[in-house]
């Protein structure tokens, strides 16, 4: 088994996503620990623009492109055949994917096909075979050593800085896309469109919880968000109650975020919510219950009715 690192790129056929850059940073750290070349796989259809972006990444040694109709929606049944084909060549010691919903869908399927274990959601590379990963909603950190020759790892993107995006000039090599399995097909998708920054890469996030009472009140948050260029997030309770869409959920089982500033509004601070945001640099809590557990992690707490505080905040921010 070789020692090279295969990284699965996160993209939507038109753009390379930021999560790829964070995952590549974990690859760079593994290389510093003795791993081999960093190769980036772009599996999709008509992803020329993505390939161009990838070719400019100075830390990538090789760009691999699998382009086929059955890869258009990156269904894991299809993409895993491409990845397994590459891994079976024996050059790789690592498969890395971001711990996004795409990466989480794909990586364990590949690991099982290769008969190796997976290390999920790493936050630190300790050595060539040892990683730190949070368990129990981040209430403990496990130092895990992998004994498989091929290490399949998903990377928590907020725990790694983004690698540089320009300066490289790598040639792209095209790789085989095995014939379609045809056991699954894409039917459609409803993607949220927003002018605001993406949750997982935003510098500031303002999130609303059950205290917001209804989706109709979210414009109060959005008005503040727009003043400071923030992304808008939510607790599970706000999503379950139908105030906002599922992709806004921050937490153990939603999105993990770590912005410079996180403002929690009408959120109590359950373990599962904290798991998704407690690595933010500065945390602000606005809650009318001074006993709310969110105040235990907040750098600045304001005990107030959010329906008064939010309009005031918007005004103060000018």
């Amino acid at each position: 088994m070789g020692n090279a690192i295969l990284v699965v790129a996160e993209h939507d056929n038109s753009q390379l996503k930021g999560a790829t850059l964070n995952t590549l940073q974990a690859a760079v750290e593994l290389k510093a620990q003795g791993a081999g070349a960093i190769e980036l796989l772009i599996a999709g259809q008509g992803s020329n623009a993505v390939v161009e972006q990838a070719a400019a990444l100075p830390d990538v040694d090789r760009v691999l492109v699998a382009d086929a109709g059955n890869l258009a929606h990156q269904l894991p049944e299809e993409v895993s055949s491409v990845v397994v084909n590459l891994l079976e060549g024996g050059d790789y010691g690592y498969l890395l994917a971001p711990a996004t919903t795409n990466g989480k869908n794909l990586a364990p399927r590949v690991a099982a096909l290769m008969d190796v274990a997976q290390v999920s959601d790493i936050t630190e590379v300790v050595s060539a075979d040892t990683f730190i990963r949070p368990i129990y909603a981040g209430n403990a950190l496990a130092k895990v050593q992998s004994h498989d020759a091929l290490k399949v790892v998903t990377v928590r993107t907020t725990a790694f800085a983004a690698v540089a995006e320009t300066g490289g000039a790598v040639e792209a090599t095209s790789v085989d896309a095995p014939a379609a399995l045809g056991v699954s097909s894409f039917v459609g998708e409803e993607l949220s469109v927003s002018e605001r920054p993406e949750l997982t890469s935003a510098r500031i996030i303002i999130s609303g919880g059950r205290g917001m009472q209804s989706g109709d009140n979210f414009p109060l948050l959005e008005a503040v968000a727009d003043k400071i260029g923030a992304a808008v997030g939510a607790s599970r309770a706000a999503v379950d109650s139908g105030f906002v869409s599922n992709d806004m959920q921050v937490g153990q089982t939603g999105k993990i975020v770590a912005p410079d500033l996180y403002i929690a509004v009408g959120i109590s601070g359950a373990i599962q919510h904290l798991a998704g945001m407690k690595d933010s640099k500065v945390i602000v809590a606005i809650n009318n219950d001074e006993e709310a557990p969110i105040f235990n992690v907040a750098d600045f707490g304001l005990v107030a009715d959010l329906f008064e505080a939010l309009p005031e905040l918007e005004k103060e921010l000018g």
Partner: peptide, 28 residues
């Protein structure tokens, strides 16, 4: 049989206790 060894389990870093502010303007 396992393929991994958990070498150590540690608590995450604690966040230092913060402060309560009296008003929105103080917060800003």
């Amino acid at each position: 049989s396992p393929r991994q060894t958990v070498l150590e389990v540690t608590p995450p870093p604690e966040r230092a206790a913060g402060v309560k502010v009296g008003s929105v303007s103080e917060l800003v």
